[in-house]
């Protein structure tokens, strides 16, 4: 340990060597070569420590360069976002809500003709044999007028069975559904909504009246919890949706809202 700052004192008294600047410059110029040699020759633990330190140095260096570059570049103007909100809604984290869907008159007209622009325009035909299973009845099982629906069905809440003996179509409890996963195409969000009814099964009118839900069926769902409103300020209650999967295979109903 040095006693007192004798080197500094000497420097103050007599100054540096005359070639000090020159030597310093050369030393600095040679430093990378010297460091590279060290990196090459070090082995074992020492090499590890050296590499780690060197790595940190490099990170710091790069950061500094980046910071300086940022200062030089002029900041580009912020892009104006869509979906302007008034000041009182700005901080509330409101998700984008869908616009009022199509207007009501158009929808009524479509309803009359029973034609919708649907996401799945063509549907594979389902034969009666595929949808219904013949159940034999009677004491000797000779009668064959009973049918069991082998597809998913929607059965309204106020449905009461006929006397089981005379029931022609049996809709099994296990295949009855009353809720569907409905995706809003504009919001890109999916909601689990109660079904109100089956509007149209493209295969046959009988399937529609039975409430059979297959791929491509148009169902009516209760969207009141989405909080959409009509132009007159009423809450929209029922909306149509088309089924996009095969519910009998998947065990759930997926549908797309018809906007």
């Amino acid at each position: 340990m040095p006693q007192n700052e004798y080197m500094e004192r000497h420097r103050k008294l007599y100054g540096r060597r005359l070639d000090y600047e020159e030597r310093q410059r050369k030393k600095e110029a040679r430093a990378p070569k010297k460091r590279a040699k060290m990196a090459r020759e070090l082995r074992g633990m020492k090499a590890k420590l050296f590499q780690k330190q060197r790595r940190n140095e490099k990170i710091q260096m790069k950061r500094k360069i980046q910071a300086h570059e940022e200062k030089k570049v002029k900041k580009q103007a912020e892009k104006v976002e869509d979906g302007a909100l008034p000041t009182y809604l700005l901080d509330r984290g409101i998700q984008s809500s869908a616009k009022v869907l199509s207007n009501m008159i158009k929808q009524k007209r479509k309803e009359k003709t029973g034609k919708w622009d649907v996401p799945i325009p063509k549907v594979r035909a389902q034969s009666d044999a595929e949808v219904f299973k013949v159940l034999r009845s009677g004491k000797t099982k000779r009668k064959a007028w009973k049918r069991m629906v082998t597809k998913v069905t929607y059965v309204g809440e106020n449905f009461t069975r006929k006397p089981p003996k005379y029931e022609r179509f049996i809709r099994p409890m296990a295949l009855r559904f009353n809720k569907a996963h409905v995706t809003h195409p504009e919001l890109k969000a999916t909601f689990y909504l109660p079904i109100i009814g089956v509007k149209k099964n493209p295969n046959s009118a009988m399937y529609t009246s039975l409430g059979v839900i297959t791929k491509g069926t148009v169902i009516e769902v209760n969207i009141s919890e989405l909080g959409l409103v009509t132009q007159t300020g009423k809450v929209v209650w029922g909306k149509y949706a088309q089924v996009t999967n095969n519910p009998e295979n998947d065990g759930c109903i997926n549908a797309i809202l018809l906007v």
């Binding site: 616009k99 009022v100 409103v229 009509t230 132009q231 007159t232 300020g233 009423k234 809450v235």
Partner: peptide
Amino acid sequence: KDSTLKVWSLKTKKLAQELPGHAD
């Protein structure tokens, strides 16, 4: 938010006029 304006009367404390028309 329901896309309407409503005019309220202070005398009756009730809705005086409903003004639908905005689309959003």
